[in-house]
């Protein structure tokens, strides 16, 4: 796999300053995350709100500055790169946002929004080429090319998210960071958009970082999953391995808490999941220890690091598994 690694993130650290009750705090949103993505691979990142999964995505596309760490695109370091080489790389690393209503400019036509990255980079040689590229991209995401002259308010939520995807794949990117791209959509539309993303993955050989809180959705589209908890990856393995045999106690709770659409498999009252942590008072030792059913004394003092376990490239950060 190492031969065709297209994105390599090492020891990413991101912190924000925040103010609570008159005191200044430093919140460590991402605490030493390392990930790698191969050409054509979809890596899912799953975790609860506040676990840092969105910050990882935003840092990779350059919307957030990391405190330390490296982000290499095809072997070239992105952090601190010169503006021209950074611009070229950014054209290859693109983002799809959760809420297409918020991410599309209501006063620009769909065509202008879709072509924006190409316009900025001077990709289009002529107006005709630009229109043709817009039309082809819209068709590629299942929209009528005539949508190019329309405005976002004229579209449904599912159509807007198709536009959100279209603007992330023109000009052809190598990596798409998709941050909860189907969470705002109804299930019937969600399935349509997921199918589209799987088609694009196959047709364009796209690599994707697919960020979601929904393990069902992640299980559908990604081949590997990284589970994040309080800024750290606690388990990473093939998707089926994680869903069918979760090892880390947090992953187990997460998988067990998915509401299964089967009334004969009721879980209410049967599982214990604990209170989520406060980002301001990070526990010593393992961040999951206060909620963990198998925590031992060691977990309260000693932060577990990722180690390889079993097959399928599984890594896990837990003392007691």
């Amino acid at each position: 796999m190492s031969g065709d690694v297209i994105l390599d993130v090492r020891e990413m650290m991101v912190s924000f300053s925040a103010r609570r009750a008159g005191r200044k705090y430093r919140v460590q949103a991402v605490d030493g995350v390392s990930l790698s993505l191969a050409q054509g691979e979809v890596l899912g990142i799953v975790g609860e709100s506040g676990c840092g999964k969105t910050t990882v995505g935003r840092t990779i596309v350059g919307l957030v500055q990391p405190g330390s760490g490296t982000i290499k695109f095809k072997g070239t370091e992105m952090i601190g790169a010169g503006s021209s080489s950074l611009r070229a790389m950014r054209l290859n690393v693109r983002m799809v946002f959760q809420d297409p209503n918020a991410s599309l400019n209501p006063r620009r036509t769909i065509g202008d929004s879709v072509a924006e990255a190409g316009d900025i980079s001077g990709f289009f040689k002529s107006r005709a080429e630009r229109s043709a590229a817009i039309a082809a991209t819209l068709t590629g995401v299942g929209l009528n090319p005539s949508f190019a002259t329309r405005y976002p308010y004229e579209l449904s939520g599912g159509q807007r998210q198709r536009v959100g995807i279209a603007r992330a794949i023109l000009p052809t990117p190598s990596i798409v960071i998709a941050d909860e791209p189907v969470s705002a959509l109804d299930v019937s539309v969600q399935a349509q958009v997921l199918n589209l993303m799987m088609d694009l993955r196959d047709q364009l050989r796209l690599s994707m970082l697919f960020i979601s809180h929904d393990l069902g959705v992640i299980g559908q589209i990604s081949s590997r999953v990284a589970v994040m908890y309080m800024g750290r990856v606690v388990e990473q393995a093939g998707t089926r391995t994680v869903l069918e045999h979760p090892l880390h106690p947090y992953t187990r709770a997460l998988v067990a808490a998915i509401p299964k659409p089967d009334p004969s498999k009721r879980i209410l009252g049967a599982i214990e999941t604990g209170e989520p942590p406060s980002l301001f008072t990070r526990p010593h030792g393992c961040a999951y220890a206060p909620r963990c059913p198998i925590a031992s004394d060691r977990c309260l003092v000693d932060v577990p690091t990722l180690r390889s376990v079993g097959t399928d490239g599984r890594t896990i950060a837990c003392h007691n598994v």
Binding site: V187, S188, Q190, A191, Q192, L194, N195, M198, D214, G216, V217, G219, Q220, R240, L243, I258, K260, P261
Partner: peptide
């Protein structure tokens, strides 16, 4: 509605849609 839920379709290549 039931058919297009990812969690009822583990392992299928494409999700059924409405």
């Amino acid at each position: 509605l039931m058919d297009c839920m990812p969690s009822r379709n583990s392992g299928v290549r494409r999700l059924p849609t409405i």
